[in-house]
Amino acid sequence: MTKLDDMRRPDRGNMLAVLLFITAGPLLWGLHLTIVYMAHTAVCALAASPGAATAILAIVTVALAVLLMLILLDQQRFARLLKVSQEIAERGSYDRIAFFLTLLSLAGILWSGLAVTILSSCAPGR
């Protein structure tokens, strides 16, 4: 029962690092949304070719999906990269929360990215 002693030591957890670690997946999902939405609106509005729009979107989707998979494959290295301490309480819980959030985001990116490949980009939706 020395947990009480532990309260005297400073917190090893860095709030921002922990936050980034668990929300990296959703943040990249947000990036995907932003790029897809802005790029295709801009490319279509500026009357460039729909082919260009589709290509940009497909590349972004694949690139981000690969990035997320890499994070999933070596989560610990990613955590070290962000300097998430091993010494915070219940570190394993953060790992799992981060893992499933990344997985969810990967699914989200692939699923909505799919729309890119099966729809012609700039056709008006009416």
Partner: peptide, 17 residues
Amino acid sequence: TGIPALSLGFFSAASMA
């Protein structure tokens, strides 16, 4: 509102997700 088909598909997919 008459937005590009791709937006429709993209946001429809996201809404289901």
